[in-house]
Nucleic acid binder design. Structure first.
Length: 457
DNA sequence: TTTTGAGTTGTTCGA
DNA sequence: GTCGAACAACTCAAA
């Protein structure tokens, strides 16, 4: 015994405030909290956040919370759930247990960052301690040589790959001393028609291992095939943090670059939103604000048809119906339906983005808003203006046998093969399926005209 | 400061 | 049926 390290004779309880990190493994903030003494696990039901969350996403969150609570109980603890404003609830609990600190994983999204600043102030002398983030590399860590953030993906990806990331954190819930106090009940799920996937950390790890050992090998070739549907389905888990991207990256080898790039996209868009918070609702390229968009009753009817999956374009309708049925949509199809809303219906991307956020269980502000801005051609590193998806060609290319559209649009069941992508060309089109609400070729030309008009300004 | 090369995911048209 | 070019101009990143 040399006495170089001070013996820890005194321990202080602390609060571990869960937000988008609803797991116990690979959890840096949990480690930081646990090494100081007993830990009270808290989740705040924040009405301001819940009011922005559609029923499927809320249901998936509540199921995830129940799973986390059960996991904590399994390790001799429990999840303290309290409803209210975080700047009131968190300091109240901290006082109640005499916390020496409140530990969090940092949140870089606009609302979360403002909320955390308010909470930190309300906590007074009790520090709000961020450890780790929901990303492989936290926003703000990767900058260009001149100290400013990247706006283009490819150089960001290069820098991100060179920067590297930490190994998964070694958090151990069974070695943590949990301190449980009273709280509110987790509310019942809202009514949801959608078939949601299993929620919680164990489900996330199961889903990851299943994909890693099966679909990952074929991912580069098949990721664009909604009919085969061998994507990883990790997005809802990454959204809620039931798995950390580092856990995933640690399993990837040199052959898995295509999938690793997707993880990098998530980091990229998080840092774009972090550095340009207004891009959550504003056109990143301001000229697009002045483009002519359709409004009025016909536009609203078309928007409604798009939402319900009754546009008469099978790949669009299949995607929109999958969204309603599963709270999820294949990524290739997300681009197709987004392009249709923006370029064929001439509606603003924000309208479509809102519908996505209402229904997607993986609805993540950074990914969603910037995915839409990319399609609309208004975002960072966006698609060139002339890139207009043809819904028939996309269907024939990525759903070559028509299996995807027949799965989600049963009215097409009697049209075999790729012909299902153009039912109007059938000798006898199905009577219970609508004809196209707009003519794609004409609307494509119209879109290019309107884009040209703002190019002149 | 200036210059240069490059930029996730597409479609259409004409040879 | 296949193939290459055109579809613009601009901004970004880096030397």
């Amino acid at each position: 015994m040399t006495g170089t390290s001070a013996p820890v004779t005194e321990t202080h309880p602390s609060v571990l405030w869960f937000r988008r990190d609803l797991r116990l493994r690979d959890h840096a903030a949990l480690m930081a909290a646990a090494e100081r003494g007993p830990v009270t696990a808290l989740f705040v039901l924040d009405d301001e956040l819940l009011s922005r969350s559609g029923a499927p996403r809320t249901a998936f969150l509540l199921r995830t919370l129940r799973s986390l609570a059960a996991d904590l109980e399994h390790h001799g603890g429990g999840l303290v759930v309290r409803r209210g404003r975080p700047e009131e609830v968190v300091p109240a609990l901290a006082r109640e247990i005499g916390a020496s600190g409140v530990h969090i994983s940092a949140d870089y999204a606009p609302y979360g960052a403002r909320r955390d600043a308010r909470v930190s102030e309300a906590l007074g002398d009790v520090p709000l301690v961020p450890t780790g983030s929901p990303y492989a590399v936290a926003p703000g860590r990767i900058l260009k040589g001149d100290g400013t953030p990247y706006k283009v993906y490819t150089p960001f990806h290069r820098a991100w790959s060179e920067h590297g990331w930490r190994r998964p954190a070694d958090s151990d819930p069974s070695q943590t001393q949990w301190l449980v106090v009273g709280g509110d009940d987790i509310p019942d799920d809202p009514d949801v028609d959608a078939q949601l996937p299993p929620a919680g950390e164990a489900a996330a790890l199961d889903a990851w291992e299943l994909f890693r050992d099966n679909g990952l090998r074929r991912y580069p070739k098949q990721r664009n095939r909604p009919d085969i549907d061998e994507t990883s389905r990790m997005s809802p888990h990454l959204k809620l943090g039931t798995i950390h991207p580092r856990t995933i990256l640690a399993d990837l080898g040199p052959a898995h670059e295509a999938y690793r790039r997707q993880i990098c996209w998530r980091d990229f868009y998080a840092q774009v939103l972090h550095h340009w918070p207004s891009s959550a609702h504003d056109y990143l390229k301001p000229a697009f604000k002045h483009m002519q968009y359709d409004t009025g009753e016909v536009a609203q009817q078309r928007f409604s048809a798009w939402q319900r999956g009754e546009t008469g374009y099978p790949i669009v309708d299949a995607g929109m119906r999958q969204l309603l049925a599963q709270g999820w949509m294949h990524n290739r199809v997300r681009m197709v339906v987004a392009s249709f809303l923006v370029k064929d219906l001439h509606l603003e991307w924000t309208q479509g983005a809102q519908h996505f956020m209402d229904h997607l269980i993986d609805g993540d502000l950074a990914n969603n808003q910037h995915g839409w801005q990319w399609t609309a051609g208004t975002g960072t590193d966006a698609a060139p203006y002339f890139r207009v998806f043809n819904p028939v060609a996309q269907g024939e290319k990525f759903d070559p046998d028509g299996d995807y559209v027949r799965r989600w649009v049963p009215q097409l069941r009697d049209i075999p093969g790729a012909a299902a992508h153009s039912p109007w060309a059938q000798p006898q089109p199905p009577a219970d399926y609508p004809p196209p609400i707009v003519d794609h070729a004409a609307e494509r030309r119209e879109s290019l005209e309107r884009l040209k008009a703002i190019g002149a300004t």
